[in-house]
Design a protein around this nucleic acid. Structure first.
Lengths: 125, 125
DNA sequence: GCCTCCGGTTACGTTGAAGTACCTGGTTAC
DNA sequence: GTAACCAGGTACTTCAACGTAACCGGAGGC
């Protein structure tokens, strides 16, 4: 009890804002099968730039969603893996990902229908 | 099969982008118990401005997530309600909301720990 | 006469997240 | 000697999303 995202002042807003950040969903889903190195993440999450990925990873580390393990080797070897907290977040975020992947046709159809109407036919009761 | 959010060109990216938009989570969750009027939405989702809410609602309508029913009365009477598609999205998005609300303490603690370290103690293996 | 109600719209300003392009350091392999 | 590897860092720019403030129209009530 006590936390409610509908309230402006509720700290859950901060949390929601972070997990709603552009690349969080991707990182969490990319790490579902275990830790990955930086380059592996860049390769897996197509379209993410090193800069943005670094920022995302730092934020998530700060929030305790993942751990950064530096093996101190040369060339560098660093692995990112989900914490227990991060793994618990994987559950809802995987569902979101799956929803997105499985409802593409419906959305695209709806968009086309809407776009086809110059004067959108909205419902009148 | 075929849709994969990790691919840059995959249309599921568009979908994910839309449902990841700032206020979509709020709107979907606000409408879980049935249709609401515009002002009711503004009141329920604290902090959202009319302008942004309108934009969000229009986008969601375009994507077939909700319906806008205008009763053509004076003063205006308009109701927004989830479609079947929107209701199916409610499932993962409610989970996200609940995750946010139930993990506030962990996140805040983690953030404090991270912020407390001027020189962040990252793991070294 | 004017205020309230509802569901917005419009013009404008701000900002923060994201993208682009280029750079670094130490080690091994050619 | 130089090229690749890995994990980034820096400087700069851009842009869409978000916020602010004011305004609208028509019906009904005081």
């Amino acid at each position: 009890m006590g936390y409610n995202v509908m309230s402006v002042t509720c700290p859950s807003r901060l949390v929601l804002h972070r997990i709603g950040a552009r690349w969080t969903v991707f990182v969490v889903n990319a790490l579902e099968d275990g830790p990955l190195r930086f380059t592996a993440l860049v390769a897996r999450i197509q379209g993410v730039t090193p800069k943005v990925l670094t920022e995302t990873l730092r934020s998530m580390e700060e929030d305790g969603l993942l751990t950064r393990v530096d093996y101190g080797e040369q060339p560098p070897h660093v692995e990112y893996g989900l914490t227990d907290l991060g793994r618990s977040l994987l559950v809802p975020l995987r569902a979101v990902r799956e929803w997105a992947e499985s409802h593409v046709p419906e959305i695209l159809e709806a968009r086309e229908r809407a776009g086809a109407d110059p004067q959108p036919t909205r419902q009148r009761a």
